[in-house]
Design a protein around this nucleic acid. Structure first.
Length: 596
RNA sequence: GCGCCCGUAGCUCAGCUGGAUAGAGCAGUAGACUACGAAUCUAAAGGUCGGGGGUUCAAAUCCCUCCGGGCGCGCCA
């Protein structure tokens, strides 16, 4: 709100200044990126500053300070600003009147100024995240994606977008068969000796999944009557039986149980999805149609691109070396990609094309995929596929990928090895059990998802009170404690604050807190466009810091009868801070306790 | 070899759509509880922004190059 005032004032004066200079351009033409606004960290540079004169200098062929002087001449007499100064190389520094800030606070308290402003152009967004393969429990890396995706979804929704969240289950392909074989072997070894020769023969040279969860699944199958029919049990027991009699059952049961565990972990972590989308469905044949969804989409792309062989910008489907390829190099990929292998089986990429075609067809304007950073090589081919599909479906779709960098688990400063095969990895559940949901989520969200993160288990466990999340939560608890105290002291606070006397709020830091609160909507909007969540957690930490500082140095609940108005005004400010923290923490999926 | 991410205080990291004196937290140092919760606060200290070159009125930020670390480069998923 305050930043908007400044922006508008500058635009107006710039427009007048351009007229004075007889320039034909409009404000938007001469400043295509708009009027830049900054919030100076240091004192003495105003409440809000703008380097707009520096940005305009070369276009207007005037020294920055001359531009600033010209702009300053055209500012009307706006009572909301105490001073507008030219500083340094040509910055315009704006300082607000305390009365304007008090007005803003009243607006917040009564909800006249909303804490969250809707974006100008709301969009239909599909946010896909986690999508961990159902071959094992979620580990700390998935947790980071879950915390990030969930917070992003909450924020995007909050600023007015229509957002749906989705988890893509890779429940098809070799890996699922390997999973079935792994649990089957574990199951056999519960019943009898299994020789290494038998293991090698059964696994066909591949590495099995090992973790304790495999044994648990085997045990469950063994101990739950009725899961296997007597025939299946008999066939599965021997190494010479017909695999098709029992292996699909092991695969199915394993996947079901693992997926159930994943869902539980997610719920416990506070993450829910609007939809779980199964890859297998894309491979299923439907009666009356021409094969599976995957086959059908490949066919459509093939038809579409048949005539355009070799033409730039349109990847066509072609046959080579007995396989079917998509010419993704036409759109910048390193090499073309196989859709249908020589052995007649479809690739993962082919299924992903069908999946994203399905998303596009559902009418979303923006697809956001949250992937692990090890998938970055996959982006160009997926972009090529999406462009082709957009062409095919006549429906332009924006595709954005957020790559989540690695989480390095650290214990006592030493890295913990996280090999999925060996089962040494630490699961999300273990971490959450030790550290708690709030702290885990906050730790994930205080760093850019684009940088790898060191997650020190011992630090998070033993010294968990040093965790920044408690700093923010404690600030909220302090506000709530103040309000409780006020209640027992029978301080009456207005239902509507409009017209209340906030004049006693004269301190610089009080104004600073109001100004900082006022930035809330802008920070959220920045998250929406950059897809970076961590600046928002930093914002909340800073809000908490300002309040702790204020609280320590200023008495809020006064004992002097003459200070009643001061007390009320300060309580009002505290209430507003509490609301900012509560709203903000909720957007990160973190609780805001009333006491700790 | 090619591609992506990263290199900023002792440690973990912000800042990177170029702009004023490069910022936090932790650790360490020195302090603050007879009033609303000390899970807090205050102060000082800590920097060749990996090295070098370039573009610019202005570079931690953009470009080139080198060095170091991580990840990825299958008719795997």
């Amino acid at each position: 709100m305050l930043d908007r005032w400044v922006q508008k004032s500058i635009e107006e004066s710039l427009s007048k200044f351009l007229k004075e200079l007889s320039r034909p351009e409009s404000v938007a033409e001469i400043l295509p990126k708009g009027v830049r606004i900054e919030f100076p960290k240091k004192d003495g540079f105003g409440d809000i500053s703008s380097p707009v004169s520096l940005n305009l200098a070369s276009a207007l062929k005037l020294p920055p300070r001359k531009v600033a002087e010209g702009l300053l001449r055209h500012f009307g007499n706006d009572r909301r600003f105490r001073t507008i100064e030219i500083a340094g190389p040509g910055y315009l520094n704006f300082t607000f009147e305390q009365s304007a800030l008090r007005e803003t606070l009243l607006g917040f308290l009564d909800g006249a100024i909303p804490l969250v402003e809707p974006v100008a152009t709301p969009r239909r967004i599909l946010l896909e995240f986690v999508s961990a393969n159902p071959t094992g429990p979620l580990h700390v890396g998935h947790g980071r994606g879950a915390a990030y995706g969930d917070a992003l979804a909450r924020i995007l929704k909050n600023i007015g977008h229509s957002v749906e969240t989705e988890y893509y289950i890779n429940d098809a392909g070799n890996q699922m068969e390997m999973l079935g074989r792994s649990t089957c072997l574990a199951w056999r070894s519960l019943r009898r000796q299994v020789s290494t020769e038998e293991v090698d023969g059964f696994l066909k040279g591949s590495t099995p999944y090992k973790g304790t969860y495999i044994k648990e699944i085997a045990k469950l199958i063994q101990e739950t009557p009725g899961l296997l029919t007597p025939e299946e049990e008999k066939a599965a027991e021997s190494s010479t039986g017909d695999e098709s009699q029992y292996l699909p059952k092991f695969t199915h049961l394993s996947q079901l149980l693992i997926m159930e565990g994943i869902r539980e972990d997610l719920v416990r972590f506070g993450v829910t999805f609007d939809r779980f989308f199964s890859e297998r469905e894309l491979h299923e044949e439907h009666s009356g149609s021409s094969g599976s969804a995957v086959q059908s989409w490949i066919g459509k792309i093939r038809d579409l691109t048949r005539e355009s062989t070799g033409s730039a910008g349109v990847p066509d489907v072609y046959e080579s070396e007995g396989a079917l390829w998509l010419r993704t190099t036409a759109l910048g990929d390193d090499k073309d990609r196989v859709l249908l292998r020589g052995d007649g089986r479809l690739t993962y990429f082919a299924a992903d094309i069908a999946y994203h075609a399905d998303k596009i067809q559902r009418g979303y304007e923006v697809l956001i995929d949250v992937w692990g950073a090890d998938h970055h090589g996959y982006i160009p081919r997926m972009e090529a596929a999406i462009q082709t599909l957009s062409l095919l479906l006549g429906h332009k779709t924006e595709f954005r990928v957020a790559l989540i960098q690695l989480v390095n688990l650290v214990r006592d400063g030493k890295p913990v090895s996280m090999s999925t095969r060996g089962g040494e990895f630490v699961t999300l559940r273990e971490v959450v059990d030790e550290v708690g949901v709030d702290a885990t989520r906050f730790i994930y969200l205080t760093r850019s998802h684009e940088s790898s993160l060191d997650f020190d288990l011992n630090r998070a466990r033993e010294k968990s009170m040093d965790n920044p999340v408690y700093y923010v939560q404690y600030a909220h608890a302090r506000v709530m404690s103040l309000l409780k105290q006020a209640e027992t002291r029978r301080v009456s606070l207005p239902e509507r604050w409009e017209g209340s006397d906030l004049e006693p709020l004269t301190l610089g830091e009080e104004g600073e807190m109001i100004r900082f609160m006022d930035r809330f909507p802008r920070v959220l909007h920045d998250v929406g466009s950059s897809l970076e969540v961590h600046p928002f957690s930093e914002y909340l930490t800073e809000m908490a810091r300002k309040f702790h500082h204020y609280y320590f140095h200023n008495r809020i609940l006064s004992q002097e009868p003459g200070d009643r108005n001061l007390m009320k005004a300060r309580l009002g400010l505290s209430i507003a801070v509490g609301r900012v923290l509560r709203t903000g923490l909720a957007l990160l999926g973190v609780t805001a306790p009333e006491s700790m």
